[in-house]
Simulated assay, not measured.
Amino acid sequence: MTTIFKKIIDKEIPAEIVYEDDQCLAFKDIHPKAPVHLLVIPKKEIVSLAHLSEGDGPLVGHCLVALSRIAAEQGLADGYKVAVNCGEAGGQEVPHLHFHLLGTPATK
């Protein structure tokens, strides 16, 4: 089964992509729960945190470093929340590992 996230990675369906590199991409959540609500996903298809292997550590680390840079670019210098749902019982709706980046940009 091809997930909606794989279709976004393959550019088969549109998304408001705010960041992309060779290993991950970030796009706006279509049902935002905060002024900034982005999803950061690895391009490698990994179902969930429970499906990570030892070899996935560098990829997950890369995604989190990218997430940190994206947060700064989005004006979240004062702080932000990162959430990961794991499995259907854990609230995961799309079976592709993803990190929710939520926050409110700082006002000057």
Rank of each mutant, 00 (worst) to 15 (best):
M1N: 10
M1D: 11
M1Y: 04
T2D: 14
T3W: 07
T3A: 13
T3S: 15
F5Y: 11
K7V: 01
I8M: 12
I9H: 10
I9V: 15
I9G: 10
D10G: 06
D10S: 14
E12P: 00
E16V: 03
I17D: 11
E20H: 04
D21E: 11
D22L: 06
Q23C: 02
C24A: 15
A26L: 09
A26E: 05
F27Y: 12
D29A: 11
I30N: 12
K33H: 03
A34C: 07
L39F: 09
V40Y: 06
V40C: 11
I41F: 04
I41D: 08
I46G: 11
I46Y: 05
V47M: 12
V47P: 01
S48H: 03
S48E: 09
A50S: 15
S53M: 10
S53I: 06
E54D: 05
E54A: 09
G55D: 15
G55P: 06
D56H: 02
P58C: 14
P58I: 13
L59S: 01
L59H: 00
V60K: 01
H62L: 04
H62V: 01
C63F: 01
L64P: 00
L64F: 15
L64Y: 09
L64W: 07
V65I: 13
S68G: 07
S68Q: 13
I70C: 12
I70H: 09
A72H: 07
Q74S: 14
Q74A: 15
G75W: 02
G75V: 03
L76A: 11
L76R: 05
A77P: 00
A77K: 05
D78V: 01
D78Q: 14
Y80G: 02
Y80Q: 02
K81T: 08
K81I: 04
V82Y: 06
V82R: 10
V84E: 09
N85P: 10
G87T: 03
E88D: 05
A89L: 14
A89C: 05
A89S: 14
A89R: 08
Q92K: 03
Q92Y: 02
E93S: 12
E93M: 08
V94Q: 09
L97G: 11
H98T: 07
H98N: 12
H98A: 14
H98V: 08
H100N: 07
L101D: 06
L102Q: 06
G103V: 02
T104S: 12
T104I: 08
T104Q: 11
